[in-house]
Design a protein around this nucleic acid. Sequence first.
DNA 1: ACCATTCGTCTGTTTCACATATCATTTGGC
DNA 2: GCCAAATGATATGTGAAACAGACGAATGGT
Lengths: 200, 200
Amino acid sequence: MPETTPAKPDTVPDTVPDAVPDAVPDTVSDTVPDALDRDLGWSLGVVFRAYVRIADALVAELPGGARGYQVLAAAAQELPGGQGALAQRLGIDKTVMTYLIDDLEQAGLVERRPDPADRRNKRVLATADGRATWTSLCSRLEHAEEHVLAPLAADERDLFRELLRKLAVRAHTLDPVTSACELVAELDPAPARPRHSARH
Amino acid sequence: MPETTPAKPDTVPDTVPDAVPDAVPDTVSDTVPDALDRDLGWSLGVVFRAYVRIADALVAELPGGARGYQVLAAAAQELPGGQGALAQRLGIDKTVMTYLIDDLEQAGLVERRPDPADRRNKRVLATADGRATWTSLCSRLEHAEEHVLAPLAADERDLFRELLRKLAVRAHTLDPVTSACELVAELDPAPARPRHSARH
DNA sequence: ACCATTCGTCTGTTTCACATATCATTTGGC
DNA sequence: GCCAAATGATATGTGAAACAGACGAATGGT
């Protein structure tokens, strides 16, 4: 599928007129007008930010916001592994995880307990309060999810969930930087010059 | 769909044994083991981060990374509106957009031009170099997209793109904080107390 | 001509990611 | 058993970015 002709730039003529077609309404966000919505990165970013915003608003009373919720959820479900593993799984930094757990622990929702098997590891367990808070927040978060998925029909929602889950699980297993490097090497031939400041 | 019984916590018993089931392999990311992958937020985050990582690696020579690419793409497509509108559309801050365009302009890829209709607005147009760079980068980014979508079948990929695009367009039109507030108000009844340090 | 508004920019503040260093604990070699 | 290497968590410092606020420039309405 390495097509040499990209699909997007066909909407802009090769010779660009200096006169801009500015008869369009100056107010943006009337109805996402044109061409950017074909970009997967843009769509992902918009949906992700929308979800994070709603989720943060819903769990605002929690120390870490949406991230704190995820940590709490992991703690309540007693996921294996120490907090380093948790950090990797949630995609946040090791050192940030420390402060995140500090806040949750100070709020009495989770507690650190050294793993009896390997006392270097500190398991993150939810207290009774933490589990209660989690179950209560859980339903709210489901509302957030449904709200984000609202523009889809019911069957589309389930389908989207499943497809996204598949992507996430797969992407998460090979999350390390490997994939990016191999992809760069794959199409290294002739990226065709932004000859200014080529900093490889 | 507001089910009062959340789907997730059924995997954890109500009375949590102090002994943790730690016979599991301590190494994480063997095969995303259990329960977190039902969370839409987690999936979105993982996929989004995976895409950003790959995209950033592919357009690393561009001043702003993946964001710089999006700005360049918008400039090359001559999207209407000033840079403020651009910032809103791309989901980045007004002031960050200033520095982002500064870098791209210094690299000779875009240029600011006051809108003849409203000279407060500064349109962001791509130079000839910018358009060439964009078309070249465009194909690379398509590879990134396909790489992220690789675990899906071809028809699933198209379907996912379409569903995600629908979500993004819808979420972007009502992006302002409105939706979060109305949702909070909607289920305000009884969020059930994390009574520690409620910092709203 | 005046005033409110909008846009871009600039300034500080805060947060977070990232790398680095340190300490405790475990593991493996001897 | 003992010492070196490795690993997990934490502390520290740096830099980037989000966010809020203020300012000047330019516009539109009255």
